[in-house]
Structure formats: structure tokens, C-alpha cells
């Protein structure tokens, strides 16, 4: 426990440049941006749940439907009726959520739209982890106060709004950190077993070739990575760094836009190299990091480099910058 406390203090709190919530709450520009970004997230839910419309043919013809507990009521309806009802509910809730994003009813509708959507995909044996950051963001937004101008004249409400927005950022960044840590753990284990890991110069090309064989896909850039493994290796090192230290960016708001841009680039590159698109993540990166309301007044590039996790520390120690 002491080690965790030491890491949190030394690597997060002491390095933190995030202003106190109390002072952020006094800034009208911050509040306005936070509210409009919450609106953007509510709207993005429509884009996510619309996937159901494109999957309609597959849903209606499928027989392997095993309802999760949240959909217990499906047994009281004939399957086609249930499918029509739940689809209508999901779309209606998503629309109300987007339209009434300043009200608590709107937040409840957004959460319900996403929870029903996930339950439906899960009932067909599908995977929903791509939409987890949205589920957690909309869950946190259930505790938001009313976001009307009158309500936001109250300091306590302004503080809570900012805190919950930071919470949504924290979950998104935590997920990336967990993914980075998992990659490092597995790389250590594979190296100890004498195997090639993702941190090995040929690791990425090995991983991609296996992926390509069993997905039957030949993404646009895969041949470059297979023929020049160094490209894939450098890319993987950058991704592991970007992911592992993601959570520290919560405390370094001046890096949030840059981190958001790099994460966006990472997701775009996986589309071209693996045909893997984490589409919902792109929407959330935009609302939480690229349009971060906490980014401080522009600092010099030199100063930003010294703020980079780990690398910045090395720069400072070696007096390079």
C-alpha cells in the first residue's frame, strides 16, 4: 500500500499541473466547454447505437439469442416484437439523451440507450468492450446536476460537473494504461520463456502475420510492416509508451490535446495496418482529450517536451532541454 501511495505522490500528485477543481469552477470558459463536450458525448451515443440499424438483417435472422439478465422481459414477447421494441427504445433514448443533454432525464436516457444496446449485443454473444468508456462516462453523468444556466450558477454544481468530467477522462485514460501494462507484463513473460514478444524488433510483424492469417484480411499497410519490421517495432514501442503513461496525462492538462492527437493517430494506424477500428474510442478521444477544456494557455514546445512522462524526466536529468 505504501508503494502505491509513493508512486501516486511522486509520479502523479507532485508532477501535477491540473488546477484545483475550485479554481476551474470559477472559470466560465471551462464550464461552457465541459457542458458542450458532455453534449457531444450524448450525441455520439446516437452514432454508436445506429449500428443496430445496419445489423438489422443479421439480428432478425439469427436464432442464437440468449438474453442477458437485463433483458429478462424479452421472454414475454415474440422475438420479432421484442427486437422492434428494443431497437425503438434504444434509438428513442439516444435521441432524447442528445436533445436533453443539459437535463438529468437526458443523462438517464443516454445511459439507458447504451446499456440496452450493450445488453442486446451481449445477448447475441457479441463483444462490447469498445463501448465501455461510453458506458462509464454515461454512468458518471447520471450523478451530474442539472446543467441549466440557473443550476450552474451554484458553485457546488459547477464543481461536481467538472469533477465528473475529469472522472470520464480518468476512465478513458485508465483503460489505455491497463492495456499498456498488460502488454509489458506479457512481453516480460514471453521474453522469460525465450519467445519473441511484442517489444522484440520482429514482434509486431509476427503478430500482424498471425492476425492476417486468421482474419483473412490484408490491410493496406501490412506489407510494409512485414517487409520492414523496424517500422512495426517503432510503432509498437510508441504505442506501449502512449498507453502505459496515459493516466498520468490526467494530471498534466497541457499534454491532453497532444495525447489525444497521438491516440487518434494510433487508432487510425490500426485501421490501415490491422483493419481494427475502435470507432467509439475516436469519438470519446475527441470529446475528452482533443477538446479538453483544461489545456492551459499555450506553452513552448520545449517546455511541453520536459513535461512528457518519463522522457521529460530524462531530458531534465540530462539537462538536454
Amino acid at each position: 500500500m505504501k508503494i502505491i501511495q509513493h508512486i501516486v505522490n511522486r509520479w502523479l500528485i507532485r508532477e501535477s499541473s491540473l488546477p484545483k477543481v475550485e479554481s476551474l469552477a470559477e472559470n466560465n470558459e471551462v464550464i461552457t466547454t465541459v457542458v458542450s463536450n458532455i453534449g457531444l458525448i450524448s450525441f455520439s451515443i446516437i452514432l454508436i447505437v445506429l449500428e443496430i440499424a445496419s445489423m438489422w438483417d443479421r439480428f432478425i435472422s439469427r436464432t442464437d439469442f440468449y438474453p442477458v439478465p437485463f433483458l429478462f422481459w424479452s421472454k414475454y414477447l415474440a422475438y420479432p416484437q421484442f427486437l422492434e421494441l428494443i431497437t425503438a427504445c434504444i434509438l428513442l433514448f439516444a435521441l432524447i439523451g442528445a436533445m436533453l443533454y443539459r437535463s438529468r432525464l437526458g443523462h438517464l436516457c443516454s445511459f439507458l440507450a447504451l446499456a440496452l444496446y450493450q445488453s442486446m449485443i451481449l445477448s447475441f454473444g457479441g463483444s462490447v468492450h469498445q463501448t465501455y468508456p461510453f458506458l462509464y462516462a454515461t454512468f458518471l453523468f447520471l450523478f451530474l446536476p442539472d446543467l441549466s444556466h440557473t443550476s450552474l450558477s451554484n458553485t457546488e454544481n459547477r464543481k461536481k460537473t467538472i469533477l465528473l468530467f475529469i472522472g470520464a477522462q480518468a476512465f478513458l485514460l485508465l483503460f489505455y494504461t491497463m492495456s499498456g501494462v498488460e502488454k509489458i507484463i506479457e512481453a516480460v513473460f514471453q521474453t522469460m520463456r525465450g519467445e519473441i514478444s511484442i517489444l522484440h524488433p520482429t514482434g509486431m510483424s509476427m503478430l500482424l502475420s498471425d492476425w492476417s492469417i486468421f482474419t483473412l484480411k490484408e490491410p493496406m499497410f501490412i506489407h510494409y510492416i512485414l517487409n520492414f519490421p523496424l517500422i512495426g517495432w517503432l510503432g509498437m514501442i510508441a504505442v506501449v509508451y502512449l498507453e502505459t503513461f496515459a493516466i498520468t496525462i490526467l494530471f498534466k492538462p497541457e499534454l491532453q490535446k497532444i495525447w489525444g492527437a497521438c491516440l487518434l493517430l494510433f487508432h487510425v494506424s490500426t485501421i490501415y495496418s490491422m483493419n481494427v477500428a475502435f470507432f467509439p474510442f475516436l469519438l470519446l478521444i475527441n470529446a475528452l482529450l482533443l477538446s479538453s477544456p483544461f489545456t492551459l494557455s499555450s506553452k513552448s514546445n520545449k517546455l511541453l517536451l520536459t513535461r512528457l512522462p518519463l522522457i521529460g524526466k530524462i531530458f531534465r536529468l540530462l539537462h538536454i532541454l
Binding site: L122, H129, L135, Y176, M178, S179, I196, L207, D210
Partner: peptide, 28 residues
């Protein structure tokens, strides 16, 4: 989330380990 890495599909709804593309299949 970390513990869900030991479950099927690395997922215990609504928790996921984010164990993605971390293992290089050396031999199949």
C-alpha cells in the same frame, strides 16, 4: 479489470482487462 484477465474472453461484464494484442504467437 485486472482480475478479468483470468476469465474467458478477458471480460467480466462490465469489466474488461484490456488485454489486447499483447501476445505474439511464435509457433501455431
Amino acid at each position: 479489470g485486472f482480475l478479468s484477465r483470468f476469465s474467458r474472453g478477458h471480460e467480466l461484464y462490465p469489466f474488461f482487462s484490456w488485454k489486447l494484442f499483447d501476445t505474439v504467437p511464435n509457433v501455431r
